[in-house]
Amino acid sequence: MKGMTPIVKVVARIVGGFIFIYGCYIVLYGHLSPGGGFAGGAIIAACFILSRLAFGTTASQEKSASISSSIFESTGGLLFLLIALLGLFVGGYFFINLFPSFGTPGRLVSAGSIPFSNIAIGIKVAAAILSIFVVLASTKYIFKE
């Protein structure tokens, strides 16, 4: 049987969604509370890793996961670079905060472009940690012969 025992599968199915939402919360509230892109991204990646461990994977799934995670990782990096470059071309300085006084401090809508950077970093870190996991796990397929 693929994956782990039914107990693990059922628990993973229940918990996985909550872990994902918690990760998103950590990313989105990164400018207000401890956390941010890196911590939240790691939690999101943990959700995917949990489901992969619990349900098991085949070689073809490993391959498609490695391709899609590398594309997401690059997209996250490009988004972050784009936010920094927008600062350069709109605000005149690399990494400048484009609308620092928008919203009320301490609320979700505040801190200008920092939340957007957090989202980009969150995508990048989640995809990167997942792809590290996939690469480490898929060595068993590469060298099976």
């Binding site: 590290i132 690469v135 480490l136 060595t139 590469i142 060298f143």
Partner: peptide, 14 residues
């Protein structure tokens, strides 16, 4: 750490 572990795993497989 991730890169070092993947190198170690590759070496182990070789």
């Amino acid at each position: 750490t991730a890169f070092m572990l993947s190198l170690i795993l590759r070496l182990y497989n070789r």
